[in-house]
């Protein structure tokens, strides 16, 4: 065994014990951890059920409307199988309360609309109220673009938008209106193969918009081009777009 291999072996052997000692630095978990986790699970289960029910109601309404059209008019009495309210009743009814994760709360459509016109933007796999992705292809290789929008982040970030521990080349500036803009590029895989450029912004009202572009169609590669698909300036334009200021997040 070479000296290097010996050192590595000893290091490996010491890891478990040292990791255990590291854990002594942490306070124990909160006593109500299980209760809160169970409550979170129950909330998620109910939300999921509500979304499914909403989908079912929408499907029934659509089927009902289709049935009415097929049968040649809206004057007929509603079919027992399609409890569709009459147009008059529908107009008079109060608007339904918004359920979480409805399409208007999702970010992807807005992201697609904000991407530069020099390339083709298509929907990515993720589309939620806080996170969405798109694929952007300018003819030199498609790259992933991801956006995260969060609210009430001022206290949580607590000065983390500086470049103290960020990669070389990071810049952080405060715009005249008070919005902080931090941008940097780093290797995702540690080998400088898959690269990600990120612009992280925090508005004075606590809204945070983070936009990242990759040189690969997924955040795990493979790389399709040498540089990320959007430039820092293009990312900045998307992150600072006023259209993020309404609705989601």
């Amino acid at each position: 065994m070479s000296p290097d291999e010996k050192t590595e072996y000893e290091f490996e052997q010491a890891m478990h014990g040292r990791l255990g000692e590291e854990l002594a630095r942490f306070a124990p978990p909160p006593h109500d951890l299980v209760r809160r986790a169970t409550e979170r699970g129950e909330r998620q289960r109910r939300r999921s059920r509500a979304v499914r029910l909403t989908g079912a109601v929408v499907a029934v309404v659509a089927l009902g409307a289709g049935g009415v059209l097929l049968h040649g008019g809206g004057a007929a009495a509603p079919s027992p199988a399609s409890p569709v309210p009459s147009p008059t009743a529908s107009t008079a009814a109060p608007p339904p309360s918004r359920l979480p994760d409805q399409p208007q709360d999702r970010l992807q459509a807005r992201l697609l609309a904000m991407l530069p016109t020099r390339g083709k933007a298509t929907a990515g796999k993720e589309d939620g109220p806080e996170y969405a992705t798109a694929l952007f292809d300018d003819g030199r290789g498609a790259g992933l673009v991801a956006v995260t929008v969060q609210s009430g982040m001022t206290a949580k970030l607590n000065g983390q938008l500086d470049c103290d521990r960020a990669p070389v080349g990071c810049t952080s500036v405060t715009l005249p209106g008070g919005t902080v803009v931090k941008s940097y590029q780093q290797s995702v895989d540690g080998n400088d193969t898959v690269l990600c450029t990120t612009v992280d912004t925090l508005r004075p009202d606590g809204r945070r918009v983070v936009v990242s572009a990759y040189n690969a169609p997924t955040d795990r590669g493979p790389a399709t081009r040498s540089k990320p698909v959007l430039t820092p300036d293009e990312l900045k334009a998307v992150a600072l777009d006023p259209r993020w200021e309404g609705g989601a997040g």
Binding site: A27, L161, Q186, S212, D219
Partner: peptide, 18 residues
């Protein structure tokens, strides 16, 4: 993955740990 990699560089050690 969802948060991207911006949070990794601002990871902080637990302030409350003794």
């Amino acid at each position: 993955r969802r948060l991207g990699f911006w949070e990794r560089v601002s990871d902080r050690l637990d302030d409350s740990a003794e």
